[in-house]
Design a protein around this nucleic acid. Structure first.
Length: 353
DNA sequence: AATTCGGGGTG
DNA sequence: CACCCAGAATT
């Protein structure tokens, strides 16, 4: 096979990038803390979605020491709504490690960065290049799409062997003296021009190097393995009211939403009717539907949430729960569906209040 | 190698 | 509705 002209491709992408203005707030300086924080926040997250979170984090936690000193619940509250909450827990763990064991200094080698919890090959390469100008090529969703098209890769790109092939291409393509520039350029190129749908092939600076274009396969690459159907789950939430307080509990174990708060939960194979709920609920008081059901789409699950409220006179049977004022509940981090119930729900059907 | 971890934007 | 996003960790 003909040797691919990596130098020409990177040169054209860099040239294209020099005419692009995409300012990113975490790149105003080369503070490793800001680069690291932004990269963790942006994992599997659109820049437009993650940027407001980043701005709030640097405002509230300007240094790694301030982040390390914060309680995990405060960090989770700031992360609320962003998803993949293990990222926030790893963020806290790593901040403490850097602040307490390394005098506030992040590792300055690729291997050192890769050893941090929550930092994988992409993030280690991103920090190494953006913060320290080291020649490591990033491979994110954008780079995978761009290079899969350039090479006309027919194999599924979510197979590890294909990712390794693309990483190898990116490594060879990266100009060692311009690692940071090229990494930024190829990601912007994928995000703005070589997009998943309706790519701007007419304006493409590397069209003559693109095998997918030559084959007329741009719209079929990258290819992915079919995903299996989502699991469906049914959460029936009981909101107990004792005076002006409600009962909440932190989720534990290895299920979704670990570390976030929720109400008294009854999970069942299917959606329960009010009659069926009467038999299942180990309490004998009246409960009332308090909102329309909410369907929450996760990456691997579909969760339908039902919300019922009841007024109670004592906390018997609720010893494992925290009693918090309605006014104070906004200080706790909840999954989006429950935050919706507490704050966004348009019309309450609740007859109690 | 396969699976799971959220949530929102987009066509 | 399906797909995708500045991926990583676990099994």
């Amino acid at each position: 096979m003909k040797e691919r002209n990596y130098a020409a491709i990177s040169k054209n992408i860099l040239s294209w990038h020099s005419r692009i203005d995409r300012s990113l707030p975490w790149k105003v300086d080369r503070d490793p803390y800001k680069i690291w924080l932004s990269e963790i926040i942006m994992q599997q997250t659109r820049v437009e979605q993650g940027t407001p979170y980043y701005l709030r984090f640097v405002e509230r936690f300007p240094t790694v020491e301030s982040l390390a000193a914060a309680p995990i619940d405060e960090i989770l509250k700031a992360w609320e709504g962003l998803g993949y909450y293990q990222r926030a827990r790893n963020l806290h763990f790593t901040a403490r490690q850097v602040a307490l064991e390394n005098n506030g200094n992040f590792p300055d080698t690729y291997e050192g960065l890769l050893a941090l919890k929550g930092v994988g090959t992409y993030t280690a390469a991103a920090i190494a290049s953006f913060a320290y100008d080291l020649p490591y090529a990033v491979v994110d969703g954008n780079v995978i799409r761009v290079l899969a098209r350039v090479a006309g890769i027919d194999a599924p790109v979510n197979a590890p062997s294909t990712v390794r092939e693309i990483q190898s291409m990116a490594d060879r393509m990266l100009p060692p003296a311009q690692g940071a520039d090229f990494n930024q350029a190829i990601m912007d190129f994928g995000a703005l021009l070589c997009r998943p749908k309706n790519p701007h092939c007419g304006d493409c600076p590397i069209q003559s190097h693109c095998r997918a274009h030559a084959m007329g396969e741009v719209h079929n690459i990258p290819k992915k393995k079919p995903k299996k159907p989502k699991r469906k789950r049914y959460f029936h939430y009981l909101i107990f009211n004792l005076d002006d307080q409600i009962f909440i509990r932190k989720r534990r174990g290895n299920d979704i939403w670990k570390g976030l708060y929720e109400f008294y939960l009854i999970e069942h194979e299917g959606l329960l009717t009010t009659e069926e709920l009467d038999k299942v609920i180990p309490f004998d008081f009246d409960f009332h539907p308090a909102a329309a059901n909410r369907i929450q789409q996760l990456s691997h699950q579909t969760i339908e949430c039902m919300f019922l409220e009841a007024r109670i006179q004592d906390d018997a049977g609720l010893e494992d729960y925290e009693r918090v004022d309605r006014k104070q509940v906004c200080k706790y981090a909840f999954p989006r569906a429950l935050d919706w119930y507490l704050n966004d729900k348009a019309v309450t059907l609740n007859l109690l209040f």
